[in-house]
């Protein structure tokens, strides 16, 4: 078996990490292992290295063998394998499919439920209000409650306007 990093020398160091329900393996040659500080328990983070190796494998699979590259910054899967870091904000879109399973093994969930910038939070609130109002309007029309429908239509109009103002701000 060849070393997973340099792909040149025979792998003699074999590492396994179990995170959640996922088992990840890395096989390294003596030199790469040394370079990555495998022998130094304080300095070595298997997670960091697996991040590079494991993730790029998953990303390759997700891309069906094609080497994806980010249209905004030119970052490729090979770059990710090398650094374990992404190139720009748009990379998350480009490599979304492969990242999903990686994130699953790394984090508590795959959806952000924490803090949202205030501006965006207001947009989200308005969007939710808009879809609520539209549902109510549909109902009002179905039940031929036209008086209510007229009121709802006005509400929808003003919510749309608020949204537009937010977007242009």
């Amino acid at each position: 078996m060849l070393c997973g990093l340099c792909k040149k020398k025979e792998a003699t160091v074999h590492l396994t990490q179990i995170a959640g329900d996922k088992i990840q393996k890395v096989d390294l040659c003596e030199e790469c292992a040394k370079e990555k500080g495998v022998n130094d328990p304080a300095g070595f983070s298997l997670a960091d290295m697996l991040l590079g190796l494991g993730a790029s494998q998953e990303m390759e699979e997700a891309a069906g063998g094609a080497d994806l590259s980010c249209p905004s910054c030119g970052f490729t899967q090979a770059d990710f394998k090398k650094t374990g870091r992404l190139g720009c904000a748009d990379c998350y879109q480009t490599f979304a499919e492969g990242l999903e399973s990686l994130l699953k093994s790394m984090h508590k969930g795959t959806r952000h439920i924490g803090k949202v910038p205030a501006g965006l939070r207001r947009t989200q609130d308005l969007q939710k209000r808009l879809s609520d109002l539209e549902g109510q309007l549909e109902n009002a029309i179905k039940t031929e409650n036209f008086e209510q429908a007229a009121l709802l239509r006005d509400d929808i109009k003003s919510t749309r306007k608020d949204l537009e103002e937010l977007a242009s701000a």
Partner: peptide, 27 residues
């Protein structure tokens, strides 16, 4: 919260604050 009014953060509703390393993604 003060700084977010002055600079445009990389943020998506789905993945939160976007970071160079996926280990820091979200919050």
């Amino acid at each position: 919260s003060r700084l977010e009014k002055k600079v445009d953060y990389a943020f998506t509703t789905e993945w939160g604050y976007l970071t160079a390393c996926p280990t820091n993604l979200g919050t």
